[in-house]
């Protein structure tokens, strides 16, 4: 019997998980990824364990990646993109551009797992991102720690004071992003924890709006963060960051729990960027008949089209994997009913 075939667009956490779930059930999967390697954004994240696991779940993605590599029913196309999708018979005919060649695939269902793009900082000059080299994004910090092994290895030993700025592009009605990106408070806190582990004497502050819990025994985590790890929380979103004429970064903010404007010096500023719909998702949605919510996240598609993971809205890694499994289950039922 000819195997059923499914196209999965996006080789990140959601795409890999739904592909694996389908392959496990005997469905052949074409996994199309635009980057050189599968794994998606989460594959570039660092481990946030200290003495024990701090539940960031980044490791899960690498485990999925390893499983995909071993799964004969998943055909991976990296550095590839979907050129055309057309309804054909009971399914879709897909043209992808892979390795410079056009490849035509016939599939019976499509899972869209295109993930997210971080909020575009070019619209926010006040944070001096791209101007000051020590103003970085959370994703850049993750990647640097993963690749170099630690903060000092990545940024040198002069880092004495670190600030995390939350909600950059999230919960911001002025730019139409009236949603919480959900994962950033916890990943900033966990990054702060591993930095504390490496630098017992550094000053680590988190600028926040409302601190968002996530996961189990949050209050204990929160208490440990404040009391044991000595992470300081400042209820403010800074209005200005500048370097010149000083050596260090100056951060201007108004602490809303104190009601006073302050300027303070920092060595490293980490911006927790909002999760925003990935570029190109509007175009893809249009072609596949997927509706978008008012922020541009996908809300389910036409017949035989399923959405998985963060393309549908902000989620942490385990939720993404769970969502992807659900989408694969729906696709499977669609194929066999």
């Amino acid at each position: 019997m000819e195997r059923k075939k499914v196209l999965v667009i996006g080789g990140g956490a959601a795409g890999m998980s739904s592909a694996l779930e389908l392959a496990e059930r005997g469905v052949e999967v074409y996994l199309v990824e635009k980057e050189k390697e599968i794994g998606g954004r989460a594959a570039t994240y660092c481990c946030k364990a200290t003495d024990e696991c701090n539940r960031c779940a980044a490791c899960l993605v690498l485990q999925e990646k390893d499983k995909v590599a071993q799964e004969p029913l998943i055909q991976v196309y990296t550095s590839a993109r979907v050129e055309e999708i057309n309804k054909s018979g009971n399914g879709y005919q897909v043209k992808i551009l892979y390795d410079g060649d056009a490849v035509t695939l016939d599939v019976q269902a499509v899972i869209v797992a295109t993930g997210f793009d971080p909020y575009d900082l070019s619209r926010r000059s006040e944070f001096a991102y791209g101007v000051e080299k020590n103003v970085i994004t959370g994703l850049e910090l993750e990647k640097a720690i993963k690749e170099k092994g630690g903060l000092v290895a990545a940024f040198g030993s002069d880092i004495k004071k670190i600030g995390f700025i939350q909600c950059v592009g999230s919960r911001d009605l002025s730019i139409g992003n009236g949603y919480c990106s959900r994962v950033c408070c916890m990943y900033a806190a966990k990054l702060a924890k591993i930095i504390r582990n490496e630098l017992p004497d550094a000053e680590i502050n988190i600028f926040y709006m409302d601190f968002q819990s996530f996961g189990k025994c949050f209050s204990e985590f929160n208490k440990e963060l404040r009391e044991t790890d000595k992470i300081k929380f400042i209820r403010a979103i800074p209005s200005k960051i500048y370097g010149f004429p000083y050596d260090r970064l100056t951060v201007r903010y108004t602490d809303s729990l104190v009601g006073k404007q302050t300027e303070d010096k920092y060595d490293l500023i980490v911006l927790s960027l909002a999760i925003t719909p990935s570029r190109g998702s509007r175009d893809l949605a249009e072609r596949l008949g997927i509706t978008l919510d008012k922020y541009g996240f996908m809300q389910g598609g036409a017949e035989g089209i399923f959405t998985a993971g963060v393309c549908e809205g902000p989620k942490d890694i385990p939720q993404t994997i769970g969502h992807a499994k659900a989408a694969a289950g729906q696709a499977y039922r669609y194929l066999f009913s």
């Binding site: 819990s213 969502h323 499994k325 039922r333």
Partner: peptide
């Protein structure tokens, strides 16, 4: 098993539907 609410319950249900669907 956790502070799960609203749409997230629907998502969990969808995952469970896929699991038990086997």
């Amino acid at each position: 098993h956790g502070p799960i609410h609203g749409v997230e319950i629907d998502r969990e249900v969808a995952t469970v539907v896929a699991e038990v669907g086997r």
